Amino acid sequence: MHLEKFLFVLSALIICTIALNFLDQEWKEWKIKYGKKYITLEKELYRRKAWEATWEKVQKHNQLADQGLTSYRMAMNHFADLTTEERNSKSCLSRGISHAQIKVDSHSYEKNIGIPNEVDWRKSKCMSPPRNQGGYCGSCWAFATIGVVETRYCIKKKKLLTLSEQLLVDCDESDEGCCGGYPIQAMAFVTKNGVMRAKDYEYSEKKAECEYNPDKAIMLNVTKYYSLPDESDMAAAVAYEGPLAVGIASGEDFQLYSEGIFEGKCAPSPTHAIIIVGYGTQPAQDENGKDTDYWIIKNSWSQQWGENGYGRMKRNIDQCNITAMVSALDLK
Rank of each mutant, 00 (worst) to 15 (best):
S89G: 10
S128R: 12
I113G: 03
T191N: 07
N299K: 01
E173A: 07
N221V: 02
D286V: 03
T151I: 03
G135S: 09
A324Q: 15
L41N: 14
K33V: 08
D215K: 15
I248F: 06
R95A: 11
H107C: 03
N62E: 02
P270W: 02
E241K: 15
H99P: 03
L163E: 04
Q59F: 13
S164G: 06
A237M: 07
N132E: 08
L7I: 10
P183G: 05
Y294T: 02
R312F: 01
D253M: 07
R95P: 06
K158S: 15
H61R: 11
K37L: 10
N193L: 01
T292V: 15
V195P: 07
M76D: 03
I276Y: 00
S300P: 04
T191D: 10
A245W: 08
H272L: 04
W305Y: 01
N112W: 08
I184E: 06
G147A: 05
Q133M: 09
E173I: 07
H272T: 03
H2I: 12
M74V: 01
R47C: 04
D286W: 01
A328H: 06
G289V: 06
D318N: 15
R122P: 10
T151R: 04
S302F: 01
G251Q: 04
C179T: 01
Y201V: 04
C137E: 00
P243M: 10
K37N: 12
T223D: 10
I322V: 15
E165W: 03
A267K: 09
A50H: 14
L45R: 14
I155V: 14
K216T: 05
N77Q: 11
K158E: 14
Q303P: 00
I297N: 03
Y294S: 09
Q63R: 09
R95F: 08
S250V: 11
L10P: 03
D81P: 00
N308G: 01
Y109G: 05
Q63I: 13
R122K: 14
D253I: 05
K5E: 10
A328C: 01
I39T: 12
A273L: 00
I218G: 08
F6R: 13
R73Y: 00
